[in-house]
Design a protein around this nucleic acid. Sequence first.
DNA 1: ATCATAACGCTTTTT
DNA 2: GCGTTATGAT
Length: 816
Amino acid sequence: MSDTNFASRWLSARRRIIEHEFASLNPEQRRAVMATEGPLLLLAGAGSGKTTVIINRIANLIRFGRASDTEETPGSATEEELAFLERYAELFSPEDREEARRLCALDPADPWRIMAITFTNKAADELKTRLAKMLGEAANDIWAATFHSVCVRILRKDVDRLGVFTSSFTIYDTADCQSLIKRILKDLDLDEKKFPPRSILSVISGAKDERVGAQEFLDSAGADPWRKSIGRVYMEYSRRMIEANAMDFDDLILHTVELLEQNEEVRAFYQRKFRYLLVDEYQDTNMLQYRFVSLLAGERQNICVVGDDDQGIYKFRGATIENILSFEKQFKNCRVIRLEQNYRSTEMILNASNAVISNNTERKGKELWTKNGRGEKLTLYEAANENDEAQYVASKILAGFSQGGNWSDYAILYRMNAQSNQLEHALKRNGVPYRVYGGMKFYDRAEVKDMMAYLCVVNNPEDDLRLRRIVNNPPRGIGDKTVENAAQVAAEEGLSLFTVMDRAKEFPALQKSAAKLAVFTEMIRDLRAEVPNRNLDDLYDLVVTRSGYLSALEQKDTQEDRTKAENVKELKTNIIEFIKSHNGIGNLAEFLDEMALYTDLDEMEGEDQGVTMMTMHSAKGLEFPSVFIVGAEEGIFPGLRSIGDPEAIEEERRLCYVAMTRAKQKLTITMAKQRMLFGQTRSNSVSRFVKEIPEECLERVSAGRSYFGGTENRSYGDQRSESRYRSYAEERRAAYGGSRAEEPVKKHTVTPPKAPSAPAKLDYRKGDSVEHKAFGRGVISSMSPMGGDFLVEIIFDKVGTKRLMLKSAAQYMKKV
DNA sequence: ATCATAACGCTTTTT
DNA sequence: GCGTTATGAT
């Protein structure tokens, strides 16, 4: 009797103590943190503190093990200890905390037995940083990484057990895969127009997701000629990937799954190793990833997945929201916790977002609420055309800035990258600094890829694809003809391209170019020989000089080539950073791995501040005080392709939900009654998603004449403000010496200066002294008409130069 | 091998 | 409307 009494007292004290550790969380969050055992589905709405929960959950596992989720008490517990705990549970005296934690803990988890999987490097890094802050040293041993990097790690260790690849396999990025497909199409004599490489890759990717191999795919093609051809390409693709000892992104997961399935020993090792599994953004996983995760979860099934079915926007890439919808079926006895309190947005924004998403049928159901207060209504601006739309956005941002806001408070989100152009022009015209994300990335630049290709070949000469890229770059007199001949020989003899080139003089077809080839292969072999002797950065220098790549650029010496040379040098900075982050040791193969799985999105947060411009897709996971969603028109958003397809529309609607819930305080949606897109003017009706927003959340503004082209009479010669607030994109280009930097702001025709609804000038002019309520005394240094108002630049005595919109500033200011 | 011209064809894209 | 790419001429 007293035993059960003892136990229940112990449990209750322990419970109170652990709860106290996580007192800063709301009840649902705390429940999620404490439900450590067995499968858990965490439906975390936008802005519900999801990452906080993940961090705290891991902290709980490490500090208390399963203590928060079991009725079990330690057999060795004594009355004195119980008394101590009960006292601590009342007083929570800090000096007793360590001891209390020790007594409460039950099987605390070793950090290296916890795996947290994310989709992006950025998310993984954020996780690691926040874990380190909370847990210190111990955080380093937690496997917090992306699906792909986890798989690479597993494969590097054990792929050879599959008997197909060796552990020095290379990773092909999307561009690599595309050029491989193009080669194959050429060799199979298929028309690229009829078989676009992108779609082929997506079909192959889909097949891999369903675990249909090339042969099986071909067999199942039946009489369908298109599928038959694709099947042949798939066959060849797989064959060449194996031959090159290369894997694409899907293969990384696929082959890990195969390895785990086929190899008892490997599977047992990882199942035993990982006691707790955490998967973020579960709504974006595909079937393969589900398979991978469930293999790791093993019998123990300590798997917690976090996601939001309303935010699944990557179906087109193979993600199945199905995974989240059927999690409860896949993992028996699963618990479900919903996080519906939103800490990000105002009620107004949330009500509007909830209303929109409620039109979807395929969802778990969830309604966000907040204590943040009502907030401003959303603004819907109906622009006359795309120029007017852009000008409206720019002037609103400018107005906000002039009232003390930061540029970085603003984000402009659009459906497709092509929409960014007019917006960029408008921002530039108005001197608003901005950054466009998702354009040409550093690692996509030809010269950077070239240098990476050199490193790949040095690392692995069998890498035919990269070899082709560099063999005549810079020009070495090894033309296509020679390479084709060599490829032919390689195919006949079953040798790699490099080997054939290396032994060119043995083959009659290559006699003519044997000498040139020998120079090249010897260079590669020399470089290879240096790998063990040098630091990675030294090796890179050597590659840059020995390849002749840099000197070829320097010889041509056009502006463009100088930019390229800069980029080649810039890559070294990345190498040095890599070495730094790896305790001074730079291993070539590791470097290539990291780069293969790296995107520039990762370096997003910079000290730079400016307005953020990106697609709605890339905005997922981010937040901004003020968000503009532009192009809210049928045919653009939802996109033309999705109209008429209910499932696609639902995905677009989720995208709309994601975009709307990025906003913390103010959400503005714009549409244009007429728009020029792809060289044609169309008039679209307002997006159905806008119609789904309750009228009481909306404030409608239409294109008055005032926004229509009102900036035009500002001369382009007025470079001062343009250069002072030069946009970051420009700055970047300028830094790279890019040719686009000199490009003048494009003169767009249209609209003569209406000097419109003449803003009554309010009796101010350049040179006037003013007294401002907030900023004090100052002198107007410039005035330019803008959007039916004037943008004035005032040099204040105390606070420096401010740019203000005259109409609004006038209320706080008088002439002196 | 490199340049010029024409023709095309266009979502979204964590890895 | 624009940027990419294929093709042909030097």
